[in-house]
Design a protein around this nucleic acid. Sequence first.
DNA 1: AACGATACGGAACACCGTTCCGTTTTGGCA
DNA 2: TGCCAAAACGGAACGGTGTTCCGTATCGTT
Lengths: 196, 196
Amino acid sequence: MSDSDEGAGRAAPSRRKDARRNKENLLDAAAAVFVASGVDAPVRDIAARAGVGLGTIYRHFPTRADLIIAVYRHQVDACAEAGPALLAAGATPHAALGEWIGLFVDFLVTKHGLAAVLHSDEAGFDALHTYFLDRLVPVCTQLLEAAAAAGEIRSDIDAYALMRGVGNLCIGAESDPRYDARRLVGLLVAGLRSPR
Amino acid sequence: MSDSDEGAGRAAPSRRKDARRNKENLLDAAAAVFVASGVDAPVRDIAARAGVGLGTIYRHFPTRADLIIAVYRHQVDACAEAGPALLAAGATPHAALGEWIGLFVDFLVTKHGLAAVLHSDEAGFDALHTYFLDRLVPVCTQLLEAAAAAGEIRSDIDAYALMRGVGNLCIGAESDPRYDARRLVGLLVAGLRSPR
DNA sequence: AACGATACGGAACACCGTTCCGTTTTGGCA
DNA sequence: TGCCAAAACGGAACGGTGTTCCGTATCGTT
């Protein structure tokens, strides 16, 4: 029950070898295409790279968001687990919050267009939105509360809004050398500090 | 030479009455459709609302961005002109900067999806990007420099990056009651303050 | 009135994500 | 081993975009 098995509501692995192999190929192909062309890459490209038909991709991943989730699940989980670790590591809660947000930003900006698609209202992306939020908002809330309890930041900030803001700031960060998303995020985190 | 005439590089009005009328109808229709369905509305919707063919819309506005620019030109210009006015109005430069950014945010959030499309890297949107930047970045630079000269904010901030960040923060602000773009922008502006 | 320049409309094209279904493959069972 | 229903496969087809293209209609001028 480490990580690749079925979790709570995940589907059991298929009983058929070809199905398992195709799903694996699809994940590899999608990962490769995502780094090459961004998460907006045409579904057909991914299917072609995996040597698979369109029907197959949609059977394994009913919506494109499900595919993206599957590809990045491990990294999102790692980010979620880093939160408590950072908090326990000794630095101040505000510093931990800053570092954790840095991890989140790193994750987003290294994936072309992920940030943009994350907050897209296109139909079908609810699952992606929901997964990110369910996994990361609680962690962010915990960091925020710790920093607020320590009196380091104002206490009227909502983790959801903050994460959404950070995600938004990361949009287009890879494709414009004049725009340094990390610096802006740093400013935002600085703005969290309690007045005086 | 007040405002509706041709400026520096704008095309002269057509010699034909029907062409001028269609362009006018197109602008009205686009404005109406933009408030009803957002700036992402299908080109066909706008053409239909204007009672015009697809060819006509593309002849007058070679790219969708040109249409958006034409529709919002006046408001962008007003925003640009408000900058110096605010600075002269008496408050501190940092307050003026905050108010001016508030104006910019108001402009963006009342137009469904404008913020998103502004920083889109889709081909053809360069013109929109460029127009906004050319018009507003100098104003923002002026405000930033005034505030920096007064020692109110750190001086290592680039107007382009700031405006881009603010624009990004406004993405999706209309469609999610849990996300208050204005508050996040406020935090960002607070983060601009010089340390100590 | 006639005619060339200009603008018009919308069919046609090139993509896209997604659905659907006839065909192929698989793995358990007799 | 041979069989066969269940499962998965591939890709044509659909509905929706933005954009191009060109035969036709209109305008303003001579």
